[in-house]
Design a protein around this nucleic acid. Structure first.
Length: 571
RNA sequence: CGGGACGUGGCUCAGUCUGGUAGAGCACAGCGUUCGGGACGCUGGGGUCGUGGGUUCAAAUCCCUCCGUCCCGACCA
């Protein structure tokens, strides 16, 4: 490709709208442009990188036995009504009507469509297992799109859906997908970790997320520094302390008394005012669920984990109660709510760690007042105890007891064992070897293609621009002609360009009428892994300069040996 | 959805507080010099100041409406 003919508008200055580095660089390097919030156009450079990732994904999916299909993006509402998701999915589902006022939606995911397809075509266990995938744009009307391609509303995703005859079959398919995902992200040159993940409201049996480790990640991963345990913090269980739940002797109990805490609502305000540590306090958080309101108790220095709370309560919906609801339920404004005297009115649950507290401090359910010296049994009943808090680096690894480290990650892939929830809801069945009708056992497997490109940039850049890993680079080689008016330089560069293209490399030749500095800056910005400079050395000694964008290594080689060296560096 | 910020040539921004002839740099076009790390000089084109309304002799500037964008939070495969 000739740079002079390429639609590659690079930006010298930082775009005002971008915050994170991958977003800034993708805009500056002319890869993407925004059309609307969370909706982006891919320009040639961006599309090339996207296609590279897609090609790797295709190869590995095909190798793992999956077959590519392409499903419609516009989907009829009836399918979504069958699974109940037409109502459950909420406002993220972009709904539309056709000219006959029939309801449709833009597909945010394709379980319904694929299950419909398979239930109509697959009748026998002899046709199983089957694993179908597609690479296609998804639309999710996110509440808050951000960070460019990292969380867009329209985004390119590879989604695969597997159908097995039984759980064992699903297990094998799941393992094959897991391994394929590892290969995909390894081949993309990413530092990643597969982590145990929450199965969410779908209620599957197992799930792993593939996290690219980067500070800008929106997820937090708990990693053991001793064994290979890694899990999303939403999920990572906290091992209860040995002392938790032990009764306190009556004689060591302080007297329960109410103290005035005017205006002190937050934990840090109360602890500062009373001059005690946050571990002496119990936070009382009121949630509203489909089964009614719930009070959840965690220690002042711990964070409540809503995923764990939902699981402990066995509910699907939960949200923090608003100010008015809290007032109606407890008689106190937010910040002064406590569990004493609450048990009769609403369900109270507590984290294991609150069970071992004695002489603790809680809100008094009265404005500007807290209770000091509270104790289980005497002042209030011990609530149902669960693992409700988010793991911290102070907690041991749930598997080996080793030290835990928290890291930020970008979720680029997710694999799920779905089981039979969709197939049962939609009547997707097959006949087994004994002629019995049974529901298909499903799995689903997603990869955010655009997000993978963005994540690769998050991990591979410097102050000058992108440093694309070779396997996903838009071009492998850029040839920089120092002076376009110098016939000797041009013919040497053109010659090398032809040779490299003939040898199957993707080459960009910078034949623009620009000064050398401009060309170097652009080459660094767009991150082509290998830069070949054809300059004055070609005239003096017949040599060219080959520079690695990845590590900065420079090779000066005679021009007739350049293609061998470049080929070697590209492999 | 709650909180905050912003919206002025293609881009980055100044001008708004204190109303009075729309600016700079970059980019773009032409000419000249320069030519291995985003050159310089001269000339030139390009802006309904997000939208609608209001106040005023006069609005980019003050007031209100709506729209859009970004950030934090909530929420979320």
């Amino acid at each position: 490709m000739r740079y002079s003919k390429l639609f590659l508008p690079t930006l010298k200055e930082m775009p005002a709208e971008a915050e994170v580095i991958s977003h800034k660089l993708m805009l500056r390097a002319g890869m993407i442009r925004k059309l609307a919030s969370g909706i982006y156009s891919y320009l040639p450079m961006g599309l090339r990188a996207l296609r590279r990732v897609e090609a790797i994904v295709r190869e590995e999916m095909n190798r793992a036995g999956a077959q590519e299909v392409l499903l419609p993006m516009v989907q009829p509402a009836e399918l979504w009504r069958e699974t109940g998701r037409w109502n459950k999915y909420g406002r993220e589902l972009l709904r539309l009507e056709d000219r006959h006022d029939r309801d449709f939606c833009l597909g945010p995911t394709h379980e319904e469509v694929i299950t419909d397809l398979v239930r109509k075509e697959i009748r026998s266990y002899r046709d199983l297992p089957i694993n179908l995938y597609q690479i296609q744009a998804k639309f999710r009307d996110e509440r808050r799109p951000r960070f460019g391609l990292m969380r867009g509303r329209e985004f390119v995703m590879k989604d695969a859906y597997s159908f097995d005859a039984d759980e064992d079959g699903l297990h094998d398919t799941y393992q094959a997908m897991y391994k394929a995902y590892c290969r995909i992200f390894e081949r993309c040159g990413l530092e990643f970790r597969p982590v145990e993940a929450d199965t969410g409201s779908i209620g599957g049996h197992a799930s792993h997320e593939f996290m690219v480790l980067a500070d800008t990640g929106e997820d937090t991963v708990a990693c053991c520094t001793r064994c290979d345990y890694a899990a999303n913090v939403e999920l990572a269980p906290v091992t209860p302390d040995r002392h938790e739940g032990q009764p306190v002797k009556a004689e060591s109990m302080e007297k329960l008394r109410e103290v005035a805490t005017p205006g002190r609502r937050r934990i840090d305000e109360v602890t500062a005012f009373l001059d005690v540590g946050p571990e002496r306090l119990i936070k009382t958080l009121i949630f509203v669920t489909e089964d009614g309101p719930v009070a959840a108790l965690v220690r002042g220095d711990h964070d409540l984990n809503e995923v764990k709370l939902k699981r402990a309560l066995g509910v699907e919906e939960s949200r923090l109660a608003d100010e008015k609801t809290v007032m109606d339920l407890t008689g106190a404004p937010v910040g002064f709510v406590g569990p004493v005297g609450l048990a009769g009115n609403i369900r109270v649950v507590g984290d294991y760690a609150v069970g071992s507290l004695s002489n603790f401090i809680v809100g008094a359910n009265r404005k500007d007042a807290h209770l000091v010296g509270a104790n289980w049994g005497r002042d209030l009943p011990l609530p149902e105890l669960y693992d409700l808090r988010t793991i911290t680096p102070a907690d041991p690894c749930p598997r080996c007891g080793g030290p835990i480290e928290l890291k930020k990650g970008i979720e680029v892939g997710h694999v799920f064992k779905l089981g039979t929830s969709y197939s049962q809801a939609m009547g997707a069945t097959f006949l087994d070897a004994r002629g019995r009708e049974r529901p298909l056992v499903m799995g689903c497997y997603g990869i955010g293609i655009g997000r993978t490109v963005a994540a690769a940039i998050e991990q591979n850049h410097d102050e000058h621009g992108i440093r694309f890993p070779m396997p996903i680079a838009p071009f492998q080689v850029i040839i920089t002609i120092i002076n376009i008016k110098d016939g000797e330089m041009v013919s040497a560069a053109e010659n090398l360009y032809r040779v490299l293209e003939d040898r199957g490399l993707d080459v960009l030749i910078d034949d623009r009428k620009e000064r050398a500095g401009v060309k170097f800056k652009d080459a660094d910005l767009i991150g082509i892994p290998i830069r070949v400079t054809v300059g004055k050395k070609i005239k003096e000694s017949g040599e060219v300069e080959i520079k690695s964008r990845t590590d900065g290594t420079v090779f000066i080689v005679p021009s007739d040996q350049a293609s061998d060296k470049i080929k070697e560096l590209c492999s």
